[in-house]
Amino acid sequence: MNGIKIVVLAKQVPDTRNVGPDAMKADGTVNRSVLPAIFNPEDLNALEQALRIKESYEGVTVTLLTMGPVRAAEIIREGLYRGADDGILLTDRAFAGSDTLATSYALALAVRRLAPDLVIGGRQAIDGDTAQVGPQVAEKLGWPQVTYAEEMHFEGERLIIRRRLERGVENVSAPLPLVVTVNGTAPACRYRNAKLVMKYKYARTDTELQAESSDYIAAGRPAIKITEWGVDAIGADPEKLGLSGSPTKVKEIENVILQSKESKRLTASDGDIESLVRELLENHTIG
């Protein structure tokens, strides 16, 4: 499909896969500052799908859309290094505390303003694992959705998508406009392109530029602009954002304290292992 416009939904997430012992503060809250912030893994799979379509057709554009603090501009640069054309950072205090529904409200408004033909996102983000935002955005747009995608290509004006389900695969055909969420089983994202890194190294949002004191920027050299949108830019109703716009509330957070059992401590020695095996056989746990 020549000339289509693709929006890739992406999120910057704390790397919960490598949570160390210092990830929790003494008061039981999460110490975000010690967790590295990364491009949500399945959103990279999504970006790859978008870039493949861009390569296969003429005039396709790929725009990254992310919501988060100013720091989240990092993943837009990361996307630009890998081949995205531009990026939008949705950032505003009013967005803070949004649950998946309030988040999808904001994202859907931003998508409307961008008016793409196709929205592609990761199946889920590793900090919540909910897999809700993609379908919720699709519903707010009134568009069909195809989730768990691992391969896609156009046949005529319809996208043919292979979905990876629990017990098999399903191939579907869907018209545009469409929201697709991509599974981690889809091809990994390509690496950064050195030329693009040079080109976009100094891509900055306005807020970043104001805070920036690098020599390059100070010398007044042109920096490529990353667009920043707040509540007004997307015409959002602040009541539908943040805590007030979120039907789900966190009632309680408990630190995980595993209840200790009386465990028998053994070594890997032949003697210890053999007596364990005998004990398990005697009490009919095995055998």
Binding site: D99, D129, T130, A131, Q132, P135, A138, E139, Q145, L165
Partner: peptide, 22 residues
């Protein structure tokens, strides 16, 4: 399931009701 996780958020978005996964 893959069905419930596709359907649940869609329904919750349409009804503006909260949904907690897993």
């Amino acid at each position: 399931t893959t069905t419930g996780r596709d359907l649940g958020p869609r329904v919750s978005s349409a009804l503006h009701s909260g949904l907690t996964a897993d």
